[in-house]
């Protein structure tokens, strides 16, 4: 081996880890194509895109930061209310609403991250759950501000970029959500492959060693948690804007629980898991609910039990293993 060979090999290896895989191009091509090919499904697809973003946010916390959260709806709902109130106050530009929701949720995430840092896994689950329950009760009580159980009334959202009015069939909303999802995905992808992203993985992998190589463990977790809260807030704002309604339901516990299910279905730690999970979950919910409206949760439950008992890989007959390899998941 000549002297230059290991350098070139190492450089190539590090490039390869972050390189776009063919399946990723296919994934996004199919996603873009769905806008053109399925115009009748845009309302459902819009919802899926929003939950995909929300699940991407949880993947940052859980798959990369290693923090199990049962209260991620707190940041989703907070962003939704922020965008809704801004619109109520007459600032109806959707992008302005997104920015406000992002800032508000990131601020909430930053502050609450210090609570989440305390203690072990179980404590963290309880803390995340408590934060979301407190927020839910606050929104319930502060009727003058949030409308309480009736939700925020009278939201009107202005046209996107001053040109495209939100339509009832969801064409504009879906395009809007998809572009936001894609842009935020690109940012997340860059960040998880950056030195910062690798240090977050290191903290999840072994916090003791992370500190022993000089990483401020707490700050890493604060960073990734705040970033995830920002993402969740934007997802909440997208839902608020495209439905022009915000209710307590956005902060409800079942949101956080469903979200965790989506991520578990799709797999954690490779960014696509949440998005695939959101698609499977929502599609199943929609499809099974058509057949048996009362029992769709039974089928979701059954899928989960099978996932756990048999294993995700074997259920999908290795296709997901291949997909993951193709998407470049590590470990």
């Amino acid at each position: 081996m000549s002297a230059a060979a290991p350098h070139a090999a190492a450089r190539a290896a590090l490039r390869e880890v972050a390189r776009w895989k063919p399946a990723e191009y296919a994934f996004w091509a199919a996603t873009a194509a769905s806008w053109f090919l399925l115009p009748g499904q845009h309302l459902l697809l819009n919802e899926i895109a929003i939950f995909a973003l929300f699940a991407l946010s949880l993947d940052l916390v859980l798959g990369f930061g290693g923090i199990v959260s049962l209260g991620h709806a707190a940041y989703f709902g907070f962003g939704g209310y922020a965008a809704g109130m801004l619109a109520q106050a007459g600032y109806t530009d959707p992008l302005l609403g997104l920015a406000a929701a992002a800032l508000a949720s990131a601020a909430l995430g930053f502050v609450t991250s210090f609570l989440v840092l305390r203690g072990s896994d179980l404590t963290r689950i309880m803390v995340t759950l408590s934060v979301s329950l407190v927020l839910f009760e606050l929104a319930n009580r502060l009727t003058w501000l949030t409308g309480g159980a009736d939700g925020l009334q009278g939201i009107t959202i202005g046209p996107l970029l001053g040109r495209f009015d939100f339509d009832l069939a969801g064409h504009v909303a879906y395009a809007y959500s998809l572009v936001v999802l894609f842009v935020l995905f690109l940012a997340a992808r860059r960040i998880v492959h950056s030195p910062f992203g690798w240090t977050v993985r290191a903290v999840r992998g072994n916090a003791l060693r992370a500190a022993a190589i000089g990483l401020a463990v707490d700050l890493r977790l604060v960073g990734i948690y705040t970033m995830a809260a920002l993402y969740a807030g934007i997802a909440g704002a997208l839902l608020a804007q495209s439905t022009q309604f915000v209710s307590l339901d956005m902060l409800a516990f079942h949101r956080s629980a469903d979200l965790l299910l989506m991520l578990v279905i799709g797999g954690v730690g490779y960014l696509y898991g949440g998005m695939i999970g959101a698609l499977v979950f929502k599609a199943m919910q929609n499809w099974v609910a058509d057949i048996t409206p009362e029992y769709w949760q039974f089928w979701i439950g059954l899928l989960l039990v099978l996932l756990v008992v048999i294993g995700r890989e074997r259920i999908f007959a290795g296709s997901l293993v291949l997909a993951r390899r193709a998407f470049g998941r590590r470990g």
Partner: peptide, 11 residues
């Protein structure tokens, strides 16, 4: 001191 870089790729 590059560990806070979040936009450049590792390496």
């Amino acid at each position: 001191g590059l560990d806070r870089q979040f936009w450049r790729r590792l390496g």
